[in-house]
Design a protein around this nucleic acid. Structure first.
Lengths: 165, 165
DNA sequence: ACAATTCCGTTACAGTATTCCGAGACAACC
DNA sequence: GGTTGTCTCGGAATACTGTAACGGAATTGT
């Protein structure tokens, strides 16, 4: 009974993804309004592309799908938008994959903790307070003052584990 | 009194670095002998370059400094050597920096946990069992089976903290 | 000595990200 | 309204990081 059925960190196959995206976009709008940031059309479009799946997306994938009035955009266009979104905690960058994922909760503490499935490539964000606290503690025990932490856990999500059984 | 003076995870300015390197190389020799791996001249040379400092080194930095009989080497030469060294747990790769550091203890568990100083760029490895266990536990609580974890903590080391005070 | 394997040099290229310049959009202020 | 300063975006060029593929050299085991 400890299987996390009631807390689907990993989205189920049947979830309404359109809804996910909509929510993410409104959240972003609100966050930006509150903080006096400009949620421009470009940034909105990039965020939407990041949210197109729960899998991490490469910058050049976004670039390919990005439509700037019929023309293709250039790399800096995408990277600038991503930089903004990351700064605003709306997107996270997964260092181990050189890829980006949308953040479901731009308001919380934000010490990047991620479960990355090697089976289906989907990613779930953790933001676990216990881990956060322990890490902070261990670091400061060594006289190190932590500014930012990034934990990337690779393995198999429940679904893929079942499939590979 | 909890300041980690007796356990210098971060090397002091005055430590004899030549000694560090020597030790790392003999450790590597032993590890390879025990495991039936070939510690070739190239690999030794690359490992030495990685250990040249306690700061992470980029692959192309190594490439520049690498001397193959007067000639310059090509990227695959370095990457292959690094791949081998990583496989043997003699070197770790820091995803957030695209850079490499020597591992001080190639025998232990090896769930990559690193303290990265933004002041002096030096890096210390943690390998903390508590963190390891907690993370494993949290992951499995969610039905996720973890294969590999990587924690990179950015901040200020004791020395730089004192300097910036 | 021979075959099998591992390792290495080399060329070419793929993928990721940044620098720089300039033009346009926007806000605030006089 | 016009002006000024800042933020944003387009685009070219280039830097940085990493791989694929091929062949030859070195090493190991028999």
């Amino acid at each position: 009974m400890t299987e996390a059925v009631d807390n689907p960190v990993f989205p189920t196959d049947a979830h309404n993804h359109r809804h996910c995206v909509e929510e993410a976009l409104t959240r972003a709008e609100n966050v930006c309004r509150e903080r006096g940031l400009r949620f421009t059309a470009l940034r909105r479009q990039v965020l939407e592309l990041v949210w197109n799946s729960h899998k991490p997306v490469g910058a050049y994938d976004i670039l390919d799908k990005l439509d700037r009035g019929g023309k293709k955009a250039a790399p800096p266009t995408v990277y600038r938008a991503l930089e903004f979104l990351i700064e605003a905690d709306l997107v996270h960058r997964l260092d181990s994959l050189n890829a980006f994922v949308g953040c479901a909760d731009p308001s919380s503490s934000h010490t990047g903790q991620f479960l990355i499935c090697r089976g289906c490539q989907s990613v779930a964000e953790l933001d676990d307070a216990d881990i956060n606290r322990l890490v902070e503690e261990k670091a400061s025990d060594l006289g190190f003052s932590a500014v930012h932490q990034m934990l990337e856990i690779q393995g198999l999500c429940p679904g893929c584990r079942a499939a590979n059984a």
